[in-house]
Design a protein around this nucleic acid. Structure first.
Lengths: 244, 244
DNA sequence: CGGGGACTTGATACTGTTCAATTTCCGTGG
DNA sequence: CCACGGAAATTGAACAGTATCAAGTCCCCG
């Protein structure tokens, strides 16, 4: 984040990168698949610390993360910032911008990353022809709403311990879904960024992680996490009296 | 909420209630307008305390609130609840359900209300023919995402005073946009519900409102609020040192 | 190998919660 | 119409959970 450098993204024609993959969960006929191929998109590379987009920038495209890790954050006028999410490979980013034709948050690479740009007007066009694609787009947008509501629940009614346990479990699930270990992974973000996301100060994040380690739930060494007992951690996400 | 009664909603054929109004902010040709009339929807009435939909219910429709006031809430397994929003006339509700074909939260009337049911499959169908409607739907979905991000900012990085000031100002704006007084209105929700929404306890809500009153910013008598100085209240939403 | 940011840990302060006691309000029934 | 009863709201006092401030360590990058 301290790097003021935002390298112009590397533009590479990317024939293999099209909406097909976006639509993997969909039931598509071969015919539909052919049409999807019409919408090949452009691959971009970003260095760690680089901005995928900035708040206020004109909205053109959604982005599918191919590799890497991003954070999104909104800035308050007074300088306070709130991390609104961490996005990893396979996730779509930029949907906040549709409503006003301008991005409502910053998206910043937490490690060297590649994204596929999906021109939104073309996607809208194509989704008028392909009901399954249309449906899929709507699901993606709605899923983001549901995700945000989950974070509201977390921020609004959980204590620091619970928030952090929920956060680790969420990462665990998402890594597992991508074929990585659900119990051993690297945190791409700083304690400060975790804290911003979870509504707590970096010191509290650090202390709480140490507590988890002290309780034998995890081993944490800098940014590498090992979860020893997913069930026990799960039990933290709940009312205190039910905890061990 | 204590009323276990959920009256079957009154079904009324409603020729005047169609997507035209939904699309007011859009630029539509007369021809498009005619097509919109195809999608007349059904009006339903709900009593105070009635459920518009429950978490888990099968998703069929979005709902446009015609009159009245709703809250949406998500329930945690352990019984904790988080109010995720308060919706008033002119707003669309139910978008969280698209992602999984089932509602992800409860929607409950805070006063006697009327809604227009918009069958979503028909809306999708029509939006394939009308790009302006399609665009509008996408904007509505995206706006919800932006709204949620704003609440994350509020919950994650504001203090109780700031949250409540932001809440009152938000209501003020929305009432003003509907032609009501921005400085004098009724709260339809309880202190508990406000607290749940803002991530604080009802006692803290009560105390903070009393403090605002003590500072001459507002007059609050039960559920009626009068804001004496919008600018001063606005100044509360910011870093403490900049406050008077 | 040096320097600066990231992280950890401790002591203290403070915001907001919890528990409890009243008071106020509002819907209901006499 | 008024009186009653329960829910909602207010207020106080003690307490708990985080934040803040501060010091020191670790780690990574150049």
């Amino acid at each position: 984040m301290q790097k003021p450098v935002t390298l112009a993204p590397l533009r590479v024609a990317c024939s293999g990168c099209n909406l097909r993959e976006l639509c993997m969960p969909m039931d598509l006929s071969d015919l539909d698949m052919e049409q999807l191929d019409d919408l090949t998109c452009i691959k971009h590379a970003y260095q760690r610390g680089g901005f995928l987009y900035r708040s206020g920038a004109k909205f053109q495209s959604l982005y599918a993360i191919r590799t890497g890790f991003f954070k999104t954050q909104v800035l308050h006028e007074d300088g306070r910032e709130q991390v609104t999410g961490f996005q990893m490979a396979g996730e779509i980013i930029g949907m906040d911008a549709i409503s006003s034709d301008a991005h409502a948050c910053d998206a910043i690479a937490l490690e060297d990353s590649e994204v596929c740009e999906i021109p939104f007007s073309r996607m809208e066009e194509l989704s008028r022809k392909l009901p399954t694609l249309q449906r899929h787009l709507h699901r993606i947008l709605s899923r983001e709403i549901v995700r945000d509501q989950g974070i509201m629940l977390l921020l609004g009614s959980m204590r620091a311990e619970e928030r952090l346990a929920a956060f680790l479990l969420n990462l665990s699930q998402r890594f597992a879904a991508r074929g990585y270990s659900p119990t051993s992974f690297y945190l791409r973000m700083t304690r400060q960024e975790i804290g911003s996301y979870l509504g707590m100060k970096l010191e509290t994040v650090s202390r709480t992680l140490s507590n988890f380690q002290g309780a034998g739930l995890i081993t944490i060494r800098n940014k590498s996490v090992e979860i020893h007992n997913l069930q026990k951690l799960q039990r933290f996400v709940g009312p205190p009296q039910e905890c061990v």
